[in-house]
Simulated assay, not measured.
Amino acid sequence: MDELHRVVVAVDIGGTKIASALVEVNESKPVILSDTQHSIPTQAAQGGEHVLNRVAQEVRTLCDRAHSWPNGELAVVGLAVASPGCVDFSGRIVSATDILPGWTGLALKSRLEQLSGLRVYALGDALAHTFGEVRWGAAQGYDSALLVAIGTGIGGGVSIDGKLLHGSHSAGGHVGHIGHPAAADIVCSCGHRGHIEPLASGPGLEHVYVQLGGAPAENPCDGAQIAARARQGDPVACQALEQVGQYLGSALGNLANVLDPAVIVLSGSVAQAGTLWLKAVRKGYAEQAIVPVASTQLVLGDLGDDAPLIGAAEAFLEGFGMCGRARGVWIDADDDRRIP
């Protein structure tokens, strides 16, 4: 089989939706076969086993597509999974928040290997997102980067010299769970109080909009609607975007004071809210960043929703040493740990 026709099945499991696609892999950038992209609701409230079965069904559907490809059968070389929570080197979910109930403890990699018959590489969804932007997006070419993905929750990743910080407890990059004084009395999805996630995520934006009187609590607007209203000049929507943007920016300023990344990449659905939100993030950042990191660029991601799929496929390739990729995925792991 010609190398140009090798594909990885890539799946991005989110709190709201499961996105999947066939990703063509070769010597250059992994390419998503656009007519194979698909998403279904996660149905997270029905529990981890239910979500796992939905993922397995999506994988089977994509494998069937590959085997009946119009221009000749595609060779499926494996499955790359971007998962919520902390994923250890064995592909097990060490910890997950209430955004996906019943996910903690799931042996994701081994279960999907059994269900699919494919080689599986699993990593955290935000780390996959980060890896995509580092290898092929807005963070490409920088010696270090902090990525923040703002959607249903807030995730992130840290890259140094092109490798991801996994952490000693598989928790590297959990940006959403740093403290913010404005969240002192708010319960986070992880169960603790005081974290930035419930303030500045999509649900946080919706909550602030309701609190400011923008919509009744029984009929709230979603983040996209709030952003659209802000663009139309709705003063409450503008205020809500500015408020959550500044919350996030101040948290990022504190992180930059510790990490000193060369660039900070903002991605996820909330990052598409528009210029007003981005200006507010940069303002909040400037209020906290010390002089050496004050000039660090805060930029929007290049890959959008494709970033986790591309990043997961790239991690699969490097983790299994395919297509000449031998740079390694993790900062703190040698080869035998990097390949579960």
Rank of each mutant, 00 (worst) to 15 (best):
D2E: 13
E3T: 14
H5T: 15
V9R: 01
D12F: 04
I18S: 11
S28A: 12
S34F: 08
T36N: 12
Q37A: 15
Q37Y: 14
Q46Y: 11
V59S: 09
R60W: 04
R65Q: 15
S68R: 13
E73K: 15
E73I: 07
G78S: 03
A80K: 00
D88P: 07
G91I: 02
R92F: 00
I93N: 01
S95V: 00
G102C: 06
G102A: 08
T104V: 00
G105K: 09
L112N: 01
Q114N: 13
L115C: 01
G117M: 13
L118N: 06
L123F: 01
G124S: 14
F131A: 14
E133W: 12
V134Q: 13
V134H: 07
W136M: 07
W136Y: 15
W136P: 09
Q140D: 09
I150N: 03
T152W: 02
G155F: 06
G156M: 01
G157C: 11
G157S: 10
S159H: 04
H174I: 00
I178G: 01
A184Y: 06
S189P: 14
G191S: 03
G191L: 03
E197I: 08
A200Q: 04
S201Y: 10
P203L: 05
E206M: 13
E206I: 03
V208A: 10
Q211L: 14
L212G: 06
A217C: 00
E218N: 14
N219P: 00
D222I: 07
D222W: 09
I226Q: 00
I226H: 02
A227M: 10
A227V: 05
A230N: 05
A230D: 05
G233N: 13
D234E: 12
P235R: 13
E242M: 10
Q243E: 14
G245T: 09
A251E: 07
A251L: 02
L252A: 03
L259K: 06
P261W: 04
I264D: 07
V270A: 08
G274D: 11
T275F: 03
R282M: 08
G284C: 05
E287F: 04
V293N: 07
A294T: 07
A307V: 10
P308D: 06
I310P: 08
E314N: 03
F320S: 08
C323R: 09
G324M: 04
V329R: 09
W330P: 00
R337T: 11
